[in-house]
């Protein structure tokens, strides 16, 4: 039961913590991660949300709602352009739920699902940024310089953090 578990408070706390850690990683390792032209973007918030779906089992957590909330905070605090991540994060949660209903979640299928999720997050935010003239990056240089390194970084983070996060979720249940 979601309502009676530690998850009720633990999940949002973890979500916000990882949101801030995303920014802090970007700041502390800015020399390595924003080493132009290739750019790595940390998406630990997405990792937390996707892991929420993977380890949810029959708990029925309000993940879409929290995804929208954290997307709104992300938009307001980090980018200042409202209306991008507030829709992208819930979409990712919805999509992951759909995928999980077809593939039983384990480490490897989780990696595959996370690959798709990160691609969608980056691609949609790229399309949105192009639409409002926040960037003038071309599609091909987006694929090579942003999507490639970002996927590499985030999949590495998935591999490193999958078991610790599973432990945290089991402890919160």
């Amino acid at each position: 039961m979601y309502r009676l578990s530690k998850m009720r408070f633990g999940f949002p706390i973890g979500l916000f913590l990882l949101l801030f850690i995303d920014g802090s990683i970007s700041q502390v390792f800015s020399r390595q991660m924003f080493n132009a032209p290739s750019v790595m973007v940390s998406h630990l918030v997405v990792l937390w949300l996707v892991c929420g779906v993977l380890f949810e089992e029959n708990m029925a957590m309000p993940l879409v709602k929290w995804a929208a909330v954290i997307g709104a905070v992300f938009d307001l605090y980090y980018t200042g352009i409202f209306g991008v991540y507030i829709f992208v994060f819930p979409l990712v949660v919805y999509l992951t739920r759909q995928l999980v209903s077809y593939i039983s979640p384990n480490f490897l299928s989780g990696l595959l699902i996370y690959f798709i999720d990160i691609t969608i997050v980056e691609a949609l935010s790229f399309v949105a940024s192009r639409a409002v003239h926040m960037t003038s990056m071309s599609g091909s240089s987006f694929l090579v310089n942003t999507l490639g390194p970002t996927l590499a970084f985030n999949l590495a983070m998935f591999v490193i953090l999958y078991f610790p996060i599973r432990w945290v979720y089991n402890w919160l249940k």
Binding site: F20, D22, G23, S24, I25, S26, Q27, S30, F34, V39, V41, S42, H43, Y77, Y78, T79, G80, E122, S125, F126, S129, M134, T135, M137, N145, T146, T150
Partner: peptide, 15 residues
């Protein structure tokens, strides 16, 4: 002091 940096590849922005 810089608190944080936007984790985004098209917005080079710090808070």
């Amino acid at each position: 002091a810089v608190i944080t940096r936007t984790p985004s590849s098209w917005q080079n922005q710090v808070v």
